[in-house]
Design a protein around this nucleic acid. Sequence first.
DNA 1: TTGAAAGCGGTACCAT
DNA 2: ATGGTACCGCTTTCAA
Lengths: 332, 332
Amino acid sequence: MNIHDIAARCGVSSATVSRVLNHSPKVSEKTRERVLTVMREEGYTPNAFARGLGLDSMKMVGILCTDVADLYYARAVSLVERSLRERGFDILLCCTGNTLAEKQRQLNRLLEKRVDALVLIGSAFREEQDNSHLKKAADQVPVVIINAWISIPNVHCVLCDEREAMERNIRLLAAKGCRRILYLYDTLTYSGLEKLSGIREGLAACGLPEQKELFLKTPEKSIASARQAVKELLEGGILPDAVAASEDLLAVGAQKALKEAGICIPLIGFNNSTYGECTSPALTSVDNMLDMICPTAVQLLAKRLAGQEAPQKILFSSRLVERETFQTEESK
Amino acid sequence: MNIHDIAARCGVSSATVSRVLNHSPKVSEKTRERVLTVMREEGYTPNAFARGLGLDSMKMVGILCTDVADLYYARAVSLVERSLRERGFDILLCCTGNTLAEKQRQLNRLLEKRVDALVLIGSAFREEQDNSHLKKAADQVPVVIINAWISIPNVHCVLCDEREAMERNIRLLAAKGCRRILYLYDTLTYSGLEKLSGIREGLAACGLPEQKELFLKTPEKSIASARQAVKELLEGGILPDAVAASEDLLAVGAQKALKEAGICIPLIGFNNSTYGECTSPALTSVDNMLDMICPTAVQLLAKRLAGQEAPQKILFSSRLVERETFQTEESK
DNA sequence: TTGAAAGCGGTACCAT
DNA sequence: ATGGTACCGCTTTCAA
């Protein structure tokens, strides 16, 4: 059942049917009625491929993330998907893992499917060495990266000021008298580096020394990994008086190790995830504003797709969500 | 740059270029070489819409879930996506929320995009009253539902025997001497009903009475909601001697309320999620085998797409993952 | 092995 | 307001 069949059954031309399909005002009310009725009767659905071929668009946006099973990315995908759907776009989702080769492959896959735009979620999409694939992609469609900043024409970045967040964490902890703050992190992506800078700046601002043994990198982003790392640290006789983590999951692991050792010190996580709400005491954590970032990213994309200009970078400031592992003076 | 341009630059016809593109053996090695070289030089990419139009397929599979932000669905989506990608399919992801109307709308959206198949994740996709939309969908493409069973031709179901899992939970708790087991749940989808049956059967099998006050429904699937519900229960003077939950998140909430009240009793969660690993003590929980279910579902779909028969229902048995809130005798 | 040409199912321009 | 038709880019059948 195609547009021509419908046209025949209505005694009109396919052009007219097409007009009805596209809500063209140049169709008489009577004709429109008739066509719509027949369409309904026949259960007709226009062929998306044919339309796509003609318009060079199927109203699809590609979303790339390293892994949707990660709670943080899952939330981001969910938020982006909703915003895009509200604007009539469908989502092609692709998980890439962390290798550059695979990220490039999947990016190209989406491009070959002729998506209208691309949303890359996570700072893992800013590569250290080679970002030429992003440049190439941005040449073909609008690209927006969530949670990383990179200066490439037509690549837009919407992110949270995580450097500032970490600096504030340090200042708040220092204000409470903490002087040996452990920083627990896993990767040094763009986001990871920003957080690290924030920690350093915070320490400097508070006149605290950078002690190498208080920067602890875990082998992976998992509770077990963080727990083990902190456990070994403590067993090595290094006793921090506070912990800041780059991720809630790491903070959870740290909390377990500390609890085990009978140590109770302030602890601040990152991402304001449900993980942090599971523990007792519940984690104080940095909210990096996905709720705002994602719709903003989509809005920006929509602007670009409408042929308008859009800012290359949008930076949100974060918000500390105070739960039980740390509270500022004011909120007490 | 299209197939004809390439053909012209090679001095062959577009048919030949098409053959090269489709790895047809009916092309001389020399010609193939030449065409491939030119393609590379021009950075040519075949137009997916045109190809889709001709083949009536863009090798895309639609995935429907109520919300990817939910950790459980996120994992499922991740696993399904990976399997499908390995088989050369791209994923159209659609989150529907819980209303029937929206589920139908999104289903149709994907169908209109002419996906090759449909994967519905979650038992929320089996409706109480009206499943005619599923029947209609299955008429057009193979459909597989993960985690629900429904008997519709061409709708395949891959799921875990959650009834059995819950029955076992009860038996194990009873074997430890528990007689007042609180069952905490949120929804009564297909999955919810199965679990409930399992609880009942378990109680019956152990000669324990069904006490109405020990079946506790939370207003929503959240820690806070479960915590509040259990807190009120305890304050009402009802003291269970064990808890089984339909979801880790609810178990986490229950654990908080119990801890607050100074009560320490066995606790079994469901889904074997990372949430359960966050708490101290860590949750013993039922693993409902997503790791196996998802690839199996995709395999089944692949069979159907290859024109072969495939079973209508595949049932996996679950596995109890013993952590700290409950352990069977044997494992001690 | 290769080429010519008829679809696939729409869109949109140009006439009327 | 409506119809005729070229075109979008690829696949595939039929001939050569």
